[in-house]
Design a protein around this nucleic acid. Structure first.
Lengths: 180, 180
DNA sequence: CGGCGACTATACACATGATGAATACTTCGA
DNA sequence: TCGAAGTATTCATCATGTGTATAGTCGCCG
């Protein structure tokens, strides 16, 4: 019994389909609604993912409607799909790594080149603070728990980045005074 | 003047090459040394990235040695590459989004299915705490500032995840008591 | 001394992730 | 009735990532 491992957005789509049949266009919108703060899913992505899910027997075509509009293919989750979904939900994720993030790559690269990273760190901090303000506003406007939980995640990590930016600047300063 | 935008690991390789010519194998190891805590770069990745960099004129083949060992192609950064590197270093990153992360996807999906997410949140917390212990040990063993800064990032985000897991569990509990 | 395993070094095949443009049909308003 | 905006899907293309094959060298154990 081989169950697909990767499928990051695929399982979210399965989760949406578990609540009832839907077609690609709707799936994209529901996905974005469920994960505010996340990068919106491109349409191309949706259909590519659906094709993979169908290939692996996790979804099936329910109907193809045509009444009053462009043709729509409605998908439904299969028993195998439900099994895969439940297994995915029950399995905890390996923590991290996060350090692949561009922020660290840039800072470490700059430091290794013996360049002063502080202007960059400062500019980054300003951008982060700006985004933070926007998110907190979004958070206040959010109605249901799920959306609030999703937004929490972005806010917490934004906050982690801010702390890190300060810690990095402090470490650089420390180093600078030691060298003097 | 078109400068490549994406290239997440490509620019790190450029940064390493800026310190002197090197070949693929060494680049992989230096990359992993510079970014401890990050996911190690696969060899296949290195050569694919190098090919793209060469295609875009950002690196050049310096020599192909053969003395006492398998053939090695040594690459060097080009003037265009240095320009691209400096531009990348000077540009701050757009903050987030982080919510694409599997952790959130899973939790929100579980909640929308009206499943109790608390067992999952608890298991996840245990895994995170475990990883955290390992990282703190690594941090203590780290010698230079750069490595410490890179590790900081992972630790800070691991911490953010832990806080988030607790906040999410609290929100779920709150909701649960409200429904009762 | 001969072969076997570990290390160095690269290449290839393939799946997934992500983006942009192209297509086609409907509705609604000026 | 013309066209702009919305609905719904497809296609082409590229980057990312992983695993595996290949191929030579080095050292060491029997």
């Amino acid at each position: 019994m081989c169950i697909v491992a990767d499928m990051s957005s695929g399982h979210v789509l399965l989760g949406i389909l578990a609540a009832g049949p839907a077609h690609g266009y709707d799936l994209k919108r529901e996905h974005d609604a469920r994960l505010p703060g996340a990068k919106p899913l491109a349409y191309g992505q949706v259909y590519a993912t659906l094709a993979r899910l169908q290939r692996d027997g996790l979804v099936e075509v329910a109907t193809t409607e045509n009444d009053g509009g462009p043709e729509r293919t409605v998908y439904d989750i299969s028993p195998a799909g439900e099994e895969s979904l439940l297994e995915w939900l029950a399995t905890p994720e390996p923590p991290g790594p996060y350090a692949a993030e561009e922020l660290v790559r840039k800072t470490v690269t700059a430091l290794r080149l013996h360049r002063d990273a502080r202007p960059f760190l400062g500019a980054q901090r300003a951008l982060h603070l700006d985004r933070m303000r926007g998110l907190v506003a979004e958070q206040r406007a959010a109605v249901d728990v799920d959306a609030r939980i999703a937004l929490d995640h972005t806010i917490f990590h934004l906050d982690a980045d801010l702390r890190w930016l300060e810690a990095a600047a402090a470490r650089v300063n420390e180093e600078g005074t030691l060298l003097r």
